[in-house]
Design a protein around this nucleic acid. Sequence first.
RNA 1: GGGACCGUAGUUCAACUGGUUAGAGCACCGCCCUGUCACGGCGGAAGUUGCGGGUUCGAAUCCCGUCGGUCCCGCCA
Length: 601
Amino acid sequence: MRNKICNDLNNSDIGQSVDLCGWVDRRRDHGGVIFLDLRDHSGFLQLTFNPEDGTDLFNTAEKLRNETVIFVRGVINKRPEESINNNISTGSLELNVKELKILNEVKNNLPFPVSIHDYENTKEELRIKYRYLDLRRGKLIQNLKTRHNILKVVRQYLDQHEFTEVETPLLTKSTPEGARDFLVPSRISKGDFFALPQSPQLFKQLLMVGGLNNYYQIAKCFRDEDLRADRQPEFTQLDMEMSFITEEEIINFNEQLIKKIWKEILNINLKEDFPRMTWQEAIDNYGTDRPDTRYEMTLKDVGNILGNIGFNIFTKAIKSGGSIKCINVKGGNTSISNVRIKPGGDIFQVAQDAGAGGLAFIRVKDNDIDTIGAIKNNLDESLIKQLLQKTNAEEGDLILLGAGKTEIVNQSLDRVRQYIAKELHLVDDVSANKKWNFLWITDFPMFAKNEEENRLEALHHPFCAPKLDLNKKESLQNDLEISTAKAYDLVLNGLEIGGGSIRIHQSELQKKVLKTVGLSNEEIEEKFGFLIEALEMGAPPHGGIAFGLDRIVMLIIGADSIRETIAFPKNQQAKCLMTKAPSNVAKSQLKELDIEITIDE
RNA sequence: GGGACCGUAGUUCAACUGGUUAGAGCACCGCCCUGUCACGGCGGAAGUUGCGGGUUCGAAUCCCGUCGGUCCCGCCA
């Protein structure tokens, strides 16, 4: 249909007749001559229409509107020196159109302007509903191409290392534990349901049992949970599994992969080894298992300094087994007012929303401190000195303290820390010197207590191997419950972008772990019998990792939401605004499945 | 399930502590314009202020409800 695309044109085409196709981006009708920017997937070219080239041609050109789809044939001219447009790559050329065909008309008043020149902040609701128009604006196409390029690097790298890409089922078995499943009814087995996979976890393990050795998949995963800017109901994991492999080997291998991606896509050389931090260190120093290490303000435990000063809230916190911790806001004395940290203030509110009862503060001034009387009256010079030393606080700093149950103190100070970092612009995401703070978190606990249900839950998932000496069988059960796992997460700038573990490859241990999270023998048999059985038939030691591809793309392109990385995303209500899915189905369809809707209309 | 913010022309926004006929840019329609490139000039059409109710002499504005959207908490092994 065409023999050129806009961006391919250069001075060697001057005088040549070319055929082009595309959309009308903008038009400038001077009455006697019409200028029109043609846009195709590659770029722009100015078209000129002259009355001398024919009345029909000119009349048709006058009718063209933005986004009309056209074919043009004409001669490439060099533009007059004074009318060269340096903003586009073909700015020194133009096409003198001799033949024009309208390939498709366009209706009046599109939902929003498409031309990037008219770009305005368009409501995301409209952008998603008319995704094809938003795509045509180009930015999203660029994002999809970046995504494609990342996958290209991944596929090439993994292929070189003899990984095999394998597709695992999308219609699979519902699992207890973990996220809610999306269910798919079976017509042939009436009353039974498939579940869409939350991840290919068990299948990839079984591929290892099958001797595949190195597996990967660009895997669609489904979780029926509430959405966030970085969470969609269907998302993509870069999923990997390896046999006869250690934690150390997996971490090193994947660090190389990540470095390769950053090098190929962003031309950034990440030379240093990614830092590592145990889960406990992360919790102690940052209050979270995905610390943002781009700024300091770490949490300090000051329980032994302030626990006995007679301030009731502090005393109670320590006596009931809790903590007193704090962060030091450098220069906070001037940058943060008392209004913000006292009840009703925004920072106070952040702490309270995270469950904290309150937020105490100490301002450091002239080697003295400024705080509420109940604290100050009970602090002697030695304690103040210890406190300043512990927090590295100096004149002009602001120390914010939380006291109470350790988990609550950690969570609230973590949120306050992040909030203040944002408010004080401690990270600059638009800077050319953007920081890429990768961090491995290791030694996760195997289990965490579910307070509401008073039972243990797997912190990662119940297939992670514990760091235990399995020869000491007598204390296995007790040791197991307090054991750490051979599990690791990769964190980037405070976001979890991947995680994995060495898996359990012995059936007995797997059964013990499933029992520990509260499953009965019958449930284990029914839900995971196939896995246990496979582990009895010569399962090799194995482990792997999965990365959140959408998040990685989001971070690389500098977007605020993974929706910017997905061609047709769903909104926060997990609905597709374009197709209006999910939607009703015909009664006959339900009847065939023996399913009845009982909701009152 | 909960909290916060938002909803005005096709679109992006405006409209003061409630005040008289809800404005502007772009897009659209008509006329003019031969070197523009965010072309320009003149004119025009375009609104159930998401929807329903309430307060008031008077509501885009205040209150209640509802629908839709975004962000967050819970949730997401």
